[in-house]
Design a protein around this nucleic acid. Structure first.
Length: 494
RNA sequence: GCCCCGUUGGUCUAGCGGUUAGGACGCCGGCCUCUCACGCCGGUAUCACGGGUUCGAAUCCCGUACGGGGUACCA
């Protein structure tokens, strides 16, 4: 990278779910690096997976990134000189570039079906050794490829990777990384739906958007050689790569929603201050020279040095986050604290809650008692209050006293899975889904709804379940379902 | 299976050839105090293992073990 070019970095989330804490983590370091060097920080939406991408997710990602304090200079909602910043709006660019590679012989059309590929992998797995595309279509006669394409046969475009030798590259953090090319198969560049894969889109966009440094998660290390091959095929200069370590669950696996809250919405709803969360994320990948732990984003910017970035895999410790949050809360004046609390118990939320508890309220002082579970994150799951008399039973249940618990656990898992696919919770939709679920599985609505109420609110008495769940919101509901599933698991084992 | 990345207390880390291996969270105990919290004091526990290199290795090199990631028409 020539030293005179301005620093340009980006964070490139895929809008396929809840706003992820890992996106904020990577975004933070990109933003800090850009600010430190007087460069630009770009938000690019990688929505090339037509099946999973959705606009609600994109909106949530933007909103929550801003909430936590990450602001970009160019992006889909702000525009900028190198737009558009949404990959689904750039498909023509990718096909044009794929065609270039096809013409230069760096890529080829592949007519293998997904079924054949699955079968091939299964066989490779059985045989042991490398797993990867066997390059059947790589040396297809161009004329034949042409006719098959004309005949409407479905195809992908694959990269022609070198079959021997090795790819060596420098990671700004980890030093030299060396990859045997044999390990790298002929990556799909263009899917049969005409959309690019990450690999193509990412390289083309990074070049066109003049990205100079790529801070991304370490899970990308293995595909970096593919990207490098692409830069070479296009005759472009690659950016500097900085692979940051992945955030970890307590068991050290890659952070995931089943083992640790990952949605930024959860952190906001659990009452964390954005500046504390951001501070904590910084601590996950970086340490100050003087080991100061409580510092602002501005302080980070002014002291940031790439060489102090860490390579070890940090476990995301909620207890320490909570401590850090308490430190930040103390820094607030009483007035500021009041503002924060008003932002947490908003007028808007209050006006939604009030109609639900109105008739249940006998005195004003009953308010806190009747509504605390709308605000708290942890309410506990009172497993002993469960009184399940009928459940979808099997002969094998016999008189196993744990059978209802087992059945409920299974049901909760299934419902949670369904809830996770929803961008947001809406009462009517939820009710329909749960009724359908009962229909499908043989649960009595009465039984399952009560159990769900216990899960969602921690109580046997609450306002109408589905309206309550809607107000509680996805983050709380998901969290409480997971907690309940855990509690049940314990109760079943006992 | 194959490839890559990593390894300082339970967790986050400082350390970049010579330190009684320091700090933070947590936990335990004490003090403060009408209680709790805060604060303060103290305690707990660590360089994964084996070979080198060196007068001297947590620090450098090589193995091993362990952990993680990748191996998709997902990103």
């Amino acid at each position: 990278m020539s030293s005179k070019s301005t620093v340009r970095v980006r964070v490139a989330p895929s809008p396929t779910g809840d706003p992820h804490v890992g996106t904020a983590y990577i975004g933070l370091f990109n933003m800090v690096f850009a600010r430190r060097n007087g460069g630009q920080f770009i938000l690019r939406i990688e929505d090339t997976d037509q099946k999973r991408s959705n606009p609600e997710s994109e909106q949530a990602i933007s909103d929550y990134l801003r909430w936590v304090g990450i602001e970009w200079d160019e992006g889909p909602d702000k525009g900028g000189p190198k737009g558009p910043y949404r990959q689904s709006e750039r498909t023509a660019i990718y096909t044009e570039h794929a065609t270039k590679l096809l013409d230069s012989g760096a890529a080829y059309r592949c007519f293998c079906t997904p079924e054949r590929l699955t079968e091939m992998r299964a066989e490779q797995r059985k045989a042991g050794g490398n797993i990867g595309y066997d390059r059947r279509c790589r040396d297809l006669d161009p004329g034949e490829a042409e006719t098959r394409m004309q005949n409407g046969e479905s195809f992908t475009v694959r990269m022609k990777m070198p079959v021997d030798g090795e790819t060596v590259f420098e990671d700004a953090l980890r030093g030299t990384i060396c990859y045997p090319n044999q390990q790298i198969d002929d990556q799909v560049l263009l899917k049969s739906d005409g959309f690019p894969t990450y690999h193509l889109a990412n390289v083309v966009d990074d070049h066109l958007m003049e990205i100079t440094h790529v801070f991304r998660a370490e899970e990308w290390i293995p595909s970096t050689p593919k990207h490098l091959a692409l830069y070479e095929a296009f005759g472009w200069e690659p950016p500097v790569f900085v692979h940051l370590s992945l955030l970890r669950n307590p068991d050290r696996s890659k952070i995931s929603k089943r083992k640790n809250p990952v949605s930024l919405e959860w952190y906001r709803e659990a009452g964390f201050l954005p500046q504390a969360l951001l501070n904590f994320l910084a601590l996950m990948g970086w340490s100050m020279q003087d080991e100061r732990e409580c510092f602002s984003c501005d302080e980070l910017v002014s002291e940031f040095d790439l060489n102090r970035l860490k390579v070890t895999e940090p476990v995301f410790d909620l207890q320490k986050l909570e401590w850090l949050n308490s430190q930040w809360m103390r820094l607030l004046s009483p007035e500021e604290l009041a503002t924060e609390i008003r932002g947490f118990m908003t007028e808007e939320r209050l006006t939604k809650i009030l109609p639900l508890i109105h008739e249940r309220l006998h005195r004003l002082d009953g308010f806190t008692e009747l509504t605390n579970y709308f605000f708290a994150m942890d309410v506990g799951f009172p497993v002993d209050d469960l009184k399940i008399k009928r459940w979808p039973t099997k002969e094998t249940d016999g008189d196993d006293p744990k059978a209802p618990l087992r059945a409920l656990n299974k049901a909760l898992k299934a419902i949670l899975e369904e809830i996770e696919t929803l961008p947001k919770l809406e009462a009517e939709d939820l009710e329909q889904r749960l009724r359908d679920f009962c229909e499908r599985t043989g649960w009595k609505t009465k039984e399952l709804f009560m159990a769900t109420r216990l899960v969602a609110t921690g109580r046997a008495a609450s306002p109408p379940l589905f309206e309550t769940m809607e107000i509680l919101g996805k983050a709380r509901i998901q969290y409480r379902f997971r907690q309940a599933i855990e509690t049940l698991r314990g109760a079943i084992k006992k």
